[in-house]
Amino acid sequence: MTTATATANRKLTAKDFQVPFPNDWCPGCGDFGIINAVQQAFARLELEAHKVAVVGGIGCSGKAPYYFPVYGVHTLHGRLLPFAHGIKLANPEMTIVGVGGDGDGLGIGAGHFVNAGRRNLDMTYIFFNNEVYGLTKGQAAPTLAMGLQPKSLPAPNIQGQLNPLMMAMSVGFTWIGRGYSYNVKKVVDLIVAAIEHPGLSFIDILQPCPTYNNLHTKDWYAGKDLDSGQPRIYWLDDTDYDPVIPEGADDAAVLGKMNEFLTKAHEWGDEIPAGVFLDNRATSTFADRIETRIENYRAQPPNKREIADESGRPTADLSEIFDEVRMT
């Protein structure tokens, strides 16, 4: 394993973002396509490895951080967003990629998902959506439709289904895409665009769980059960759908785009749209908002501030603060 840095002579490749450790996902797991795509995206973006943190939750997807030679943070169930926020807020130079499952993000972590949207912090959240809890052996995830019964369920699912795209849009994610883990090339494009987006981006990645989701399999996504025999996934960039809300867009323009988004995000069944659903450039980022209050936030972020002189004396000067409460 080497420390990845691009030089004038050599462009980075996905290999620079691989690690020589065995991977314990099940054979055929959709997760492989995702980490493969992330490695390629990092290389294409020529990221410096030490300036990248991959932050995972709990579950099969949560193990993804182990497969990159960057700062890999395997956090708690549902908590990847708060940890990721803490890292990014304190060290804004870092590129942060969250990798978490459907249950992690919209089950136990739903509160964080909702409130992350309110902040629009610059990071990318890759959502591993296989509709089941894999590591605990196949229970229903919040993305599983009502009435379905993947093989581990003793009875059909009697809880409703969350639509992650609509969730992300309604809470304020400013870049929203969907990919399919067996189409790595497209996922790489999505990840690159999501990382380049200067706000909170979300990629819903549909993926089979070959072990526990016997309903939405590779064959199902390939449309083998359909009369047409055509793949279910179709790509928005092959249509005239335009995901962009330009900088300075007015409320009416934003509302119009939301309506188009909802129509697309709602499509499911024989034809499933994928690609970029929303690219909102009109909303300020959290760092912009912080800068309105802490002027030198980007120049002197929390991790960089010089807090002590060479002899350990505090650099903070509290005289103004003491003066406010000074009596005699």
């Binding site: 926020h85 803490g86 929390p302």
Partner: peptide, 19 residues
């Protein structure tokens, strides 16, 4: 933050960077 779980996790994340 949205709750105390987020508060403690966010502070821990920030601490990892040296803040």
């Amino acid at each position: 933050t949205e709750d105390e779980i987020s508060a403690v996790c966010m502070a821990a994340g920030a601490a990892l960077t040296g803040a």
